[in-house]
C-alpha cells in the first residue's frame, strides 16, 4: 500500500484552498453561543461606572490582526458606548497604525473628544521593561502623547490619570504573544492590583485558563471569542455600527467549522492509511 509520504501534499493545499475560498464566497453566517469567559469579559466592562479610566494595550501585529482586531474594535465600541475614558498604549511596534485607524473611525461615532475621552500614547519599546515603566509611572513612560505630540500634563485625561496606575480602573490587553497578557499579569496586574481583561490569539488562549478568574477577570479566546463578543457588543454599540463586523465574524466561523471537519478527516484518513499499511506489511 502506498505511504502517505508518497502523496503530493499540494493536493491537500489545493483542497484546503478551494474549501475556504468556496465557503467564503458563499458568505453564509450563523450566530454562536456565548461562553462564560466572554460573558465575564463583557460584564467586567459593563459594570464599570461612567467616566472610568480604562487602559487598553494593543499588543499585536498584522499576523494576529485577523483574531485580535475584531476584539479590539468591539472593545473600543463597548468602552465608548459606556462612556469610559480610554488610554491607549502599545507594546508591539506594529500596532499603532491599527489603533490610529480604529479610533479615527470609531471615536466620531460617539462624539468622543481626543484628550478628554481617549488618548493615544503610542508604542513603548522594551517588552517587560515597557510594562514595568508604564506601571511605575505613566508620565515617565510617555512624557508626550503620540497623536498631537502634546505634553503629558496638557492632556486633561492624562492629568486625571495622575502619575501612577492608581486611577486606572481596568487594563485590557489585546495580546498576540510576547510581550502580552502574561507579562502584564507579572509586571502590572500583581504589583499594582489592577483588574485585567485580555483578548488573545488561539495559540495563547490555553494559557489563560490558568489565570481565570482570580488574576484575569475574563478573556476573549481566538476568533471564537471575538465572534461571541461582537454578538454582545452589537446590542450596546451605537446604531448597529458593529453589525457588519459581527456578521463577517459569524460567517468566518462557519467556514472555520468546515475547515476543522476537514482537518479531523485528514487526521483520521492519515491514521487509517498508516495502520492499514502497517498491518499488511
Amino acid at each position: 500500500m502506498a505511504s502517505v509520504h508518497d502523496f503530493d501534499r499540494r493536493w491537500i493545499f489545493l483542497i484546503m484552498g478551494l474549501l475556504v475560498v468556496g465557503l467564503v464566497a458563499a458568505g453564509i453566517s450563523a450566530p454562536m453561543p456565548v461562553s462564560e469567559y466572554v460573558d465575564s469579559y463583557f460584564a467586567t466592562i459593563d459594570k464599570l461606572p461612567e467616566g472610568s479610566i480604562v487602559m487598553v494595550s494593543a499588543d499585536f501585529d498584522p499576523a494576529s490582526a485577523a483574531e485580535l482586531l475584531p476584539m479590539y474594535t468591539g472593545t473600543i465600541h463597548h468602552l465608548l458606548a459606556k462612556k469610559m475614558r480610554i488610554v491607549n498604549v502599545c507594546t508591539w511596534p506594529a500596532a499603532p497604525p491599527y489603533t490610529a485607524s480604529r479610533f479615527a473611525e470609531i471615536a466620531p461615532m460617539y462624539d468622543a473628544v481626543y484628550g478628554e475621552d481617549w488618548v493615544e500614547l503610542g508604542f513603548l519599546p522594551g517588552d517587560d521593561v515597557a510594562m514595568g515603566t508604564i506601571g511605575q509611572s505613566l508620565r515617565s513612560a510617555y512624557p508626550r502623547e503620540t497623536k498631537n505630540n502634546m505634553a503629558y500634563d496638557d492632556v486633561p485625561l492624562l492629568r486625571d490619570c495622575g502619575d501612577s496606575m492608581g486611577n486606572i480602573e481596568l487594563l485590557i490587553t489585546m495580546s498576540a504573544g510576547y510581550p502580552g497578557i502574561l507579562e502584564w499579569i507579572a509586571q502590572v496586574g500583581g504589583r499594582y492590583e489592577i483588574e485585567l481583561l485580555a483578548g488573545t490569539t488561539a495559540v495563547q488562549t490555553p494559557d489563560l485558563f490558568a489565570f481565570y478568574p482570580s488574576q484575569l477577570s475574563g478573556f476573549l479566546g481566538a476568533a471564537t471569542g471575538a465572534t461571541q463578543y461582537l454578538q454582545l457588543v452589537d446590542d450596546v454599540a451605537i446604531d448597529g455600527s458593529v453589525t457588519a463586523d459581527k456578521e463577517t465574524q459569524q460567517s468566518r466561523m462557519l467556514v472555520q467549522t468546515w475547515a476543522h471537519y476537514f482537518m479531523i478527516l485528514l487526521i483520521i484518513v492519515g491514521n487509517v492509511i498508516y495502520f492499514t499499511g502497517r498491518k499488511s506489511s
Binding site: 502517505v4 501534499r9 484546503m16 482537518m263 485528514l266 487526521i267 484518513v269 492519515g270 491514521n271
Partner: peptide, 15 residues
C-alpha cells in the same frame, strides 16, 4: 501555516 498544519495532520499525526 494553515496549509502546512493540514499537510502535517495527514502525514505525521499518528495515534
Amino acid at each position: 501555516l494553515a496549509f502546512f498544519i493540514a499537510s502535517a495532520a495527514f502525514r505525521a499525526f499518528r495515534a
